[in-house]
Simulated scan of single mutants.
Amino acid sequence: MLSSGMSEDRKRSLEVKDSAGEAVKLFLELVYTGTTSREFGHDSALSALDLAHRWQVQCVVTMLELALKEMVSDENFASIAAAAKLKGLHVLSSACRDFGASSSVVQKQLKARKLPGLVLELMGVKDAPAQGAAERDAGPSRKRRAM
């Protein structure tokens, strides 16, 4: 057994501080079994998707992308569409575009530009704010250091 001296080795656990427990459980269940019997909503699915995308577990990304495709509604459209655009998820992006095109609520939000810039861009709104514009306007960024 290799030992790196990391606390995960000693504790035999891994802390994921920036994700809800239900999302971590969902992610792990999908990693280990490829399926789940638990009920979960879009928030848990999006959080689990963030983990899968960050850790490059493509099979879980695909499973959650397909699950989220079936969950898109007027209430969660913006958060799911933004995640689809940000992560380059083509199937989910297409489902969001289709949903948004047929939803009167989303169409009203698009016309009023009341959706995040990523979502406006996904929906093909002309003159949508460029991706990352908010970060550029926030001031100078910290320099990255090569390791």
Rank of each mutant, 00 (worst) to 15 (best):
S94Y: 10
V119W: 00
L118M: 10
R142H: 13
G139Y: 13
K111Y: 06
L118V: 05
E121Q: 14
S141H: 14
G132N: 12
V91Q: 08
A134H: 13
C96S: 07
V91F: 09
D98K: 13
G124I: 08
G139S: 13
A138I: 09
R142L: 14
Q109L: 11
G100F: 00
K108P: 02
A134C: 10
K114H: 05
R142Q: 13
V105D: 08
A84Q: 04
A95P: 01
L110Q: 03
E135T: 15
R97P: 03
P116L: 00
A101H: 09
R113H: 04
R142D: 13
G124R: 07
K114Q: 08
S93D: 00
L120W: 03
G100L: 02
K114A: 08
H90Q: 15
E121H: 11
S104T: 12
L120A: 04
A112H: 07
G117R: 03
L115M: 03
H90S: 15
G124W: 06
P129E: 12
S102M: 09
G132V: 11
G100N: 01
L92S: 01
L86V: 06
L86N: 06
A128N: 11
A130I: 10
Q109G: 03
V125Q: 06
Q107A: 10
V105P: 03
L115V: 02
S103V: 04
F99L: 05
Q107T: 07
L120N: 01
S93E: 05
G124A: 08
E135H: 15
H90A: 14
Q109D: 09
V105I: 12
V125M: 07
G117D: 03
L110T: 02
S141D: 12
D98L: 12
D137Q: 15
A84K: 01
A134R: 14
D98M: 10
S103D: 04
F99P: 01
A128R: 06
A133T: 13
P140N: 12
A112T: 06
M123C: 11
K111V: 07
K111G: 04
V106N: 00
G124V: 07
K108C: 10
K126M: 09
S94C: 11
S141Q: 15
Q107H: 05
D127S: 15
V119N: 00
S141V: 11
G88R: 07
K126T: 11
V105A: 10
A130Q: 14
G124T: 07
D98E: 14
L86F: 07
K114F: 01
V106R: 00
